[in-house]
């Protein structure tokens, strides 16, 4: 099955080449890249404390389809906790390029716009694991679902960037807060993004998110979220110094089968400071409850030192202490080596 999958992936550029007529096939091929994520891990609570793993290989195909839309497809080969590898379509979506009224439509399987962190691929993060709140509220891989997303640039008298995103999706087959029912209910999301430049070096982003959808008890779960990001990067020497402070808070409301409900809280805050052109230091605090138990508390404290060799390779060393009232305290050390070969992707801000 996996061989067939790989074979199909390799055929995609060939198939597109065949459609191009006299134009060079390589020109019309989509941008293709492969991202590798290799790790060495120490976990104090496990019997096998040291472990090496090739955590994930992600292959992306990205290109305009025609003047009206583009396609982005990401396949992932990931390793599960048993050490087995399996392939999956991480994301595959079509995005319009030129709808009127500053509207953009996205359809397919994609990372849902639940604030800041969920929308980015984990290998781009300055730390090696997702915050406990994101895992606790959205799942180990974040909230990824099939659906449609409509975004609109809101005109405003001050002319700052304001975007509203509304999404309707099929409901993830399984996530801590939501579960796809046998019939007729969907997951709805709205996100309001406000972006302001304080000066040429400093920006602030403030976002509000609301999600509502069915859960395992066939009731409704709702999540409200606030995200805040402050970035500072001097334009003149923008490769040498920068600072990012990012925080998100999630408030969950889980409707239970008996008509009762559980309110839960999750949050994280991290600060990344660029020490030199290739060196970055990140500190992060996590806090989360479980969706169905506000009494369960998990806290995490982590620090990561990153060496970013080029745009195509980085190595990070993380140390993390996890405390909580439901599990024993544990410490983790992770060495993560990320590399990219293939097309140079565009960066997100």
């Amino acid at each position: 099955m996996r061989r067939k999958f790989l074979f199909c992936c390799l055929l995609i550029p060939v198939a597109l080449y065949g459609q191009t007529g006299p134009v060079s096939g390589s020109v019309m091929n989509p941008n293709i890249s492969l991202i590798g994520d290799f790790r060495g891990m120490y976990t104090s609570e496990l019997a096998r404390k040291f472990e090496f793993m090739f955590n994930e290989a992600e292959v992306s195909f990205q290109s305009s389809i025609d003047p009206y839309a583009r396609a982005d497809v990401f396949f992932s080969w990931g390793r599960d906790s048993a050490g087995e590898y399996s392939s999956s379509v991480e994301e595959a979506y079509v995005t319009t390029l030129s709808l009127p009224m500053d509207i953009r439509l996205k359809a397919g399987r994609y990372r849902m716009t639940t604030g800041r962190l969920n929308t980015v691929h984990p290998h781009t993060l300055p730390f090696s694991d997702l915050p406990a709140a994101n895992r606790g509220f959205f799942g180990e891989e974040g909230l990824i679902d099939e659906g449609v997303s409509l975004s609109w640039l809101i005109p405003n008298p001050l002319d700052f960037y304001q975007e509203i995103v509304v999404e309707a999706s099929d409901v993830p087959a399984e996530s801590p807060f939501f579960m796809r029912p046998a019939s007729g209910r969907y997951l709805y999301l709205a996100h309001l993004k406000n972006f302001i430049e304080l000066d040429e070096n400093t920006t602030v982003e403030l976002g509000l998110t609301g999600l509502s959808g069915p859960n395992e008890d066939l009731r409704t779960s709702t999540i409200g979220g606030i995200d805040f990001t402050l970035k500072w990067k001097p334009l003149r020497f923008n490769r040498y110094r920068s600072l990012t402070w990012q925080s998100e808070v999630f408030l969950g409301h889980y409707g239970e089968a008996d008509g009762g409900s559980v309110r839960s809280l999750g949050c994280y805050s991290f600060l990344t400071y660029q020490l030199a052109v290739q060196w970055f230091m990140t500190g992060r605090f996590d806090y989360t409850n479980l969706p169905r138990s506000a009494d369960v508390v998990e806290r995490g404290y982590s620090a990561t030192l990153g060496w970013y060799a080029t745009e195509f390779q980085k190595i990070g060393l993380s140390g993390k202490l996890v405390t909580g009232n439901a599990v024993a305290d544990r410490s983790e050390i992770a060495l993560r080596w990320i590399f990219v070969i293939g097309a140079h992707g565009a960066h997100a801000y």
Partner: peptide
């Protein structure tokens, strides 16, 4: 980009999207 900024490393700030739209 500004004139004193490395043109290969410009942050794609969302505020530029407003100008481009």
């Amino acid at each position: 980009a500004t004139g004193y900024q490395n043109p290969h490393f410009v942050d794609p700030k969302p505020s530029f999207i407003m100008k481009l739209s």
